[in-house]
Nucleic acid binder design. Structure first.
Lengths: 221, 221
DNA sequence: GTACTTTCGTAATGGGCGATACGGAACACC
DNA sequence: GGTGTTCCGTATCGCCCATTACGAAAGTAC
């Protein structure tokens, strides 16, 4: 019975168009579209500091409908995080599609400086800042986001490994530290943006930080 | 009357030894010493996710006594932050006492890698992580911590200016970006520590990041 | 000892939280 | 048009939150 409920949730969330269900009263809202204002609220105030009352007001959906569509507050947050990460594409996809690790890192860091200072969105990064210090009851949510962050770091580290093997990076490069350094800069940029730093400042810090990328051995680019 | 209460609070918090008050039932706890467990809780769970019930249990002080000594939850948090920042000395003092900006930055970043991975303390930095995403009611607390972060950044930037004028740094050095870069790395290290990174890893990232410090012109060290 | 001052612990305050029970409404199916 | 199914809105649930009223307790002052 619990599995049945969950499958409905997945159906309701995956498709923006009318789902495969045939009978019963139709949904009066688009569960995918309603994630937008929820994502913005979680982005601004974080997971725990965003109340259901604020969410229902911003989404234009009553709480029983939210619980039917997403399960509970954690389910809604997870869906909002998924939406956040796929706009326009996930960091892991960015890393995979870049021609090399240097481009991947540059795209991530420069993209962070821009994404963290959007005029129509809250400052900083939802993934980096919305569940850092949480209560014991929400520790699973914090851990989920930490796992995503580690996943990105691992993907970048693997790309660096490839470049070292291919001779595009010096053999002495420490792939683990280099990947961790890039993540450190991105996380730090989120806090600076939240503290009110301008886009220009963030972009300059990003450029400065990227100057540490090891140079390719001669003739191996 | 409100000012009177506040003066009592300051007296009670500044002196660990018996205050100048003569009459009345004596305090049954040391308001300064009781900040230690409160600081650790705020450090671990952040300002909003730490409840008064947890605080009273950890401090061994009932809530009316907490309100008499610190005013309210925000007052207790501010006192805990002050205690955090003065162990062993404030970042601004570290910057002021260093022989030059390079040493100041190195001391801050290397100290962060160690302080953020203590075995007897929560991971990460209380200043960097305890009030990042907060509700509207706690936005003043977030802003207060942001002001402290900006103060540290400004102090570092001014130290860099001195070094440029004294010829210890290249004239083309952008003091604003260099100071912001150091702050970015420190904030990022806090998140990495919270995500479970080891002290060794943080120290290596710190060393790596510090390699970006501009070299002094020849003969000007 | 008596009066005065301050802090103590107990117990409660109103309010907001996440989550839900329930009956009516809106569709598809036949 | 009747039946079955699903969703909607209202109203509310119990719980925990930060904060405080109140009377007893523990000191000093005289």
């Amino acid at each position: 019975m619990h599995a049945v409920v969950k499958s409905f949730i997945l159906i309701g969330m995956k498709a923006s168009q009318p789902s495969v269900r045939k009978t019963g009263r139709p949904l009066s809202f688009d569960p995918q579209a309603a994630l937008e204002p929820a994502m913005l609220l979680f982005w601004r105030h974080g997971y725990e500091a965003t109340s259901l009352a604020e969410l229902t007001r911003a989404m234009g959906v009553t709480s029983p409908s939210i619980y039917a569509a997403y399960g509970d507050k954690k389910g809604l947050f997870r869906a909002a995080v998924r939406r956040y990460l796929t706009q326009p594409q996930t960091p892991v996809a960015v890393i995979a599609q870049a021609p090399n690790a240097a481009t991947a890192a540059r795209t991530l860091v420069e993209g962070a400086a821009i994404a963290f200072t959007g005029t129509d969105t809250p400052a900083g990064c939802l993934l980096a800042s919305s569940a850092i210090a949480v209560s014991a009851e929400a520790d699973d949510v914090r851990e989920e986001l930490a796992a995503i962050r580690r996943e990105i770091e691992t993907a970048l580290r693997d790309r660096i490994s490839d470049d070292i093997k291919a001779g595009r990076l010096p053999p002495a490069t420490d792939r683990t530290i280099l990947a961790a350094y890039v993540m450190t800069v991105i996380q730090g940029l989120s806090t600076l943006a939240r503290d009110g730093a301008t886009r220009a400042k963030l972009e300059q810090v990003a450029q400065f930080a990227l100057a540490l990328w090891p140079q390719a051995p001669p003739g191996k680019l």
